[in-house]
Design a protein around this nucleic acid. Sequence first.
DNA 1: TGTAGGCACACGCCAAATCCTCT
DNA 2: AGAGGATTTGGCGTGTGCCT
Length: 753
Amino acid sequence: MLRVWLLDASEDLSSKIPSVLIWAIKEDGSRTVLRANYYPSIYLVGEDEEKKVKDLTRIFADKVLDAELKNVKIRGKEVKAIKVRLNSTEVESLGEEISKELKLKVYNYDIRYTTKFWIENRIEPSTWYEFVEEGTDGTTRVDISTAKKLDKNKPKLKVVSFEVIYFSEKGTPRADRDPIVAIALCSNEGYKNIIVGKENEILSTFCDEIMRIDPDVIVGFKNNQTHWSYLLKRAKINSVKLKVGRNQSEPHQSVFGHFSIQGRINIDLFDLVKETPEVKLESLEEYAEFLNIKVNYNTIDEFEISERWKSKPEEVKNFCLGRAVTILEIYNSLEDYIFELSKITSLPADQVLATSAGFRVESYLMKKAEEVGELVPERKEIVHESYQGAIVKAPISGLHENVAVVDFKSMYPSLMIKHNISFDTIVKDGEQAPGLNFGFSKERGFLPMALVDLIEERDKIRKIMREVKEGSTEYKVLDSRQKAIKIITNAVYGYTGWAGARWYAREVAEATTAWGRITITSAIDKAEKLGLSVIYSDTDSLFVSYKKDKVEEFLEWIKNELSLEAKIDKIFLRIIFTEAKKKYAGLTEDGKVEFVGLEAVRGDWSTIAKEVQSKVIERILKTGSKDEGLKVLNEYIDLLRKASVDVKKLVIWKQITRPIEEYEATAPHVVVARYLIKSGWKVDPGDKVGYVVVKGSGRIYTRVKPYFEAKLEEIDWQYYIENQVIAACERILEAVGIDVKKVGKYKQSKLFT
DNA sequence: TGTAGGCACACGCCAAATCCTCT
DNA sequence: AGAGGATTTGGCGTGTGCCT
């Protein structure tokens, strides 16, 4: 018996029979690689099955191991299918070939061999298993069918973080031209090093150290998008082999720009930043701050890094090493979450972060499909018709006191379960979804089943958590797991309405929102009947005047009459609404001010505008006096008139969302991006461009500059006062009854001419 | 390699309206 | 007074980022 924790799997290219190499950790802590034969299965559906089973084994004798008839389900419908075990890892091309030759519809075929490995064998990555050993041929062979899951804690992984500094005379470093000047390496066993010197030596030392430390995980920031391809290119130029893999191999690009390193897990924290909406500029330092991780170095902007390398290399080295340290610390705080997400989705930790929500849900559903004999439809392009979504009730604008926020608990998943909404339960007769000409049968559907499993699992974990010491390792692992489950649960509804989904079902998404609308509408009516005035409502939440007894009665009614759960999410002592939906700010019982949707939480407003708006609102909420708010605004306007605000606070950041030539309109941020590109900087979709508005006349785009080129003297203060600071505060003050245009003397006065 | 729809808001674009200057 | 260019106005489209 062999007990191992599974790190990753890759196709065994050296084997003649289809096999995988499984990278694993043994109980004694040693690292190992196992070899297992695995014949992937595809399914064929159509006429004349018995005959075609014979044809199959005849025509594709060398490519097919065996074929048998099986009862399976396609979107819930029982069908007979030929299950074919392929004697090949070329699943997709072979599947297509067989399908064409035998004129049968093919299922479970357009999935990568290694992905199928986990799913078909019902093995989860990042988990302990026991296998029966089959012997050894240099590598230990195991029989995958003997896999038995064990409930054991994750072993301690060896982790290395790295950061790279490139030198470029002008603009974004280019791998064909600009050298690497420093690489910082850091391990979770206390190793710390900044490698500098000749480029070929930097590269070989980097490889040597990695091979010596032999980490299970290599973590970086933007390593998929930048570092690995850059390092590979520079290694080639220097005739150095970038040996970092467990087989002395180089990193290789796998699908979708992600890099794989044999036997190790390559993690890019940038993937995590991108899915953290609170982090607006998506920088490492901002992310660290969000996670309450202290940064112990002075940040150097990418635009000045090469400059600084020439003048003060020690500072750059310190920066580089500091970043590596921070990367490691961030990784440490998120490690459990990453591996729990990997388990739930059956996507190796290496890939799970690189994939988006839709693919995580899909991977989870594929796992479930295997359990119940549901076939996996092929991925195909479809035309998506958009459908009606949720209801947002216009708020009663103004300053309110004692407002309770009542939330339905996971409304969409609950409705999908309650009404059995699923792609395999759609029926034209019987009870229909509200306002739609179809409904759902009573027989338990696939999606509700999957959702029930997820919710039950999460409840189970949360129950255990109550008995575990908060802050303990076990608690943290459980918490990571329940968070990972929640993310998958909440994304299932959206998945069904996603055009790229294998199990795309607009009807499912449409019916879910339809029942959602009925639900919230009836809740609003009931609340009003109970004498709770509904100040605002969005999708699954209601803001009501807080009367304890009545709210409790209301929650009871939801439970009994709607068979759904709702709870008081929070109580605002004071709350401000403007006329706009999805925007408000409130003071909670613990004295915190929360901003929702307002400029203060948007990444595309200058810091000064956000700061003034927050301060104005905070003052109003805390004092209850609107005049106090106006006072704050006036103080700040004086500061701006005196030009005594740091340029950094004036930068407006906007994302470039497409290749620059695809823009139709001349937007300020696009003009700046074009200028940057002309100056040798790379601006790709997803990059953020920071600019300031300078003095001049006419269109704004004619007088914008990259933030690092702007001087304080040229700032257009008038713009910042009117279009940023006042713009952000005006609607707020108006909502509480102050007409800034009349009361404020600043709007009309030309300050600089 | 994109979970969904609903929403606000800035600013450019473009044409019509209005203003302004000059004859 | 009227021509004709300059400037303003207002509706609409583009673009971004937020909420649940």
